[in-house]
């Protein structure tokens, strides 16, 4: 079966800075792929390049077998890709419900209602605070809103950029449980995470990104046992 996402020799950067130097990656249908790496390794750039927000300088991105390299972001995102951007980036002066609407703008009324109740079931907080301005939510709530907003677009591939960033351990554990739940419902997930231990426990497969290149990749369980990975990312 063709992978949901296939990346071949991807290069991208910002002017003279080369953030990605030949990434090869495959994400199979229904799996959770964890992408770990230190700061500045190019993880977020990779997600932004997949979404078409950063334009690649070389290489190819295939989504569900179609070449989506360098096309406009809205053309990619409207094909069933969604991103939970780093740092949440919810719309602070719009209400929680309006934030969710922005995610589900392409849905029909019936579908919107269905997805809204699903998302509100996952995050009951989002229905309690539907009328509150996004900017007045706490960090964890904003993260849940960002995930909910991405889910509203009915994604088949969900790109998540550091969902546990800046969250208390208890909240981030809840977020990870929800990611697992989303995946169980059939959404393929590419998870970028600094918290390598939690990410590897959750993921089926994983790869390690370092200065724009994939240095190790494989089964998540194997990665956890890999002494190099343990040393560099799991704190020995």
């Amino acid at each position: 079966m063709a992978p949901v996402l296939e990346i071949k020799g991807l290069h991208a950067g910002y002017g003279p800075i080369k953030a990605l130097r030949g990434i090869d990656l495959e994400v199979g249908k229904g799996e959770i792929m964890a992408l770990i790496g230190s700061n500045g390794a190019g993880k977020s750039t990779l997600l932004m390049t997949i979404c078409g927000i950063v334009k690649p300088t070389a290489g190819k991105v295939f989504y569900e077998g179609r070449d989506v390299t360098g096309i406009q972001s809205y053309n990619i995102m409207n094909q069933g890709v969604a991103q939970v951007p780093e740092g949440r980036r919810i719309f602070p002066r719009m209400t929680v419900l309006e934030n969710l609407q922005m995610g589900g703008a392409k849905l029909s009324v019936a579908e919107f209602g269905r997805y809204l109740s699903w998302v509100q079931e996952l995050f009951p907080m989002l229905s309690e605070r539907a009328q509150q301005l996004g900017g007045t939510l706490s960090g964890g709530e904003q993260q849940m809103l960002a995930i909910g907003r991405a889910l509203m677009s009915k994604p088949r591939l969900l790109l998540m950029d550091e969902p546990s960033l800046g969250l208390a351990p208890l909240i981030s554990r809840r977020i990870f449980a929800i990611i697992e739940e989303i995946n169980r419902r059939g959404t393929t997930i590419l998870l970028v995470e600094q918290n390598a231990y939690a990410a590897l426990r959750l993921a089926n497969r994983a790869c390690v990104l370092s200065t724009g290149e994939i240095v190790v990749s494989g089964d998540a369980q194997e990665m956890m046992d890999n002494p190099e990975v343990q040393e560099a990312y799991l704190g020995g």
């Binding site: 927000i53 991103q83 719309f91 719009m94 922005m102 703008a105």
Partner: peptide, 22 residues
């Protein structure tokens, strides 16, 4: 109108949601 507001709030996030910013 909502898309205008979303773009005002956060352009990158709007793009990541598939809003045609052009």
């Amino acid at each position: 109108g909502r898309a205008w507001e979303a773009l005002r709030e956060d352009e990158t996030a709007s793009k990541a949601l598939g809003i045609n910013h052009t």
